[in-house]
């Protein structure tokens, strides 16, 4: 069972990242749910979504104590760092977050997602750098399942983006393995 919260500001792709994870889980015949935060907070500050991937029936899709948090910006880390289960994982976007997490009972990975994405020439794939790191660290779903999901999710005229997304995941994966 994995309960994840993915958070960032609008446009950082945390919602679609969550949907890709849920989709991949579904392809692996697991029980999955995805739920966004909704309301006025969507119109500015921080947006987040919760994803549950498990073999058992899912109770609440709302995640209160996540196993994994991905924080793409500082307000997200401020909001969710304290909620992570002891022994859980925090991946944060060190390109935009200059403070270090305070928790010492969790695994922390600093991923310079924006810098890597910019090196790849597409700042919008920062979320996929995070995705690569997340999968390597947690194994919550297989990389292959995300690839399959991407192929299905990207419209036919955007399939050219597949390659850069895959590259971004590989770079993130390497950073997590280091």
């Amino acid at each position: 069972m994995a309960e994840l919260i993915l958070a960032g500001f609008g446009g950082q792709g945390v919602m679609s990242m969550g949907q890709m994870l849920a989709y991949a889980g579904m392809l692996e015949q697991k029980k999955v749910s995805w739920i966004p935060s909704y309301g006025p907070e969507m119109r500015g500050g921080t947006a987040n979504c919760a994803v549950v991937i498990t073999d058992e029936e899912i109770g609440s899709p709302v995640v209160v104590e996540p196993d994994v948090v991905v924080a793409m910006n500082l307000p997200s880390m401020d909001k969710f760092e304290s909620t992570i289960k002891p022994g859980g994982v925090l991946l944060y976007n060190s390109s935009l977050i200059d403070r270090k997490p305070a928790r010492d009972d969790i695994t922390v990975l600093a991923i310079p997602a924006n810098e890597v994405a910019n090196e790849l020439g597409n700042t919008r794939v920062a979320n996929m750098v995070m995705m690569g790191a997340l999968l390597t660290q947690t194994g919550v779903v297989k990389v292959d399942s995300i690839h399959k999901g991407l192929e299905q999710v990207l419209p036919s005229h955007r399939q050219d983006l597949l390659e850069v997304n895959k590259q971004a995941m590989e770079r993130g994966s390497k950073l997590a393995a280091e």
Binding site: Q19, A22, M26, S33, W34, I35, P36, I58, P61
Partner: peptide, 10 residues
């Protein structure tokens, strides 16, 4: 309710 309306499931 808002949870069921907003959540995604297969």
């Amino acid at each position: 309710d808002g949870v069921l309306g907003q959540m995604m499931e297969p």
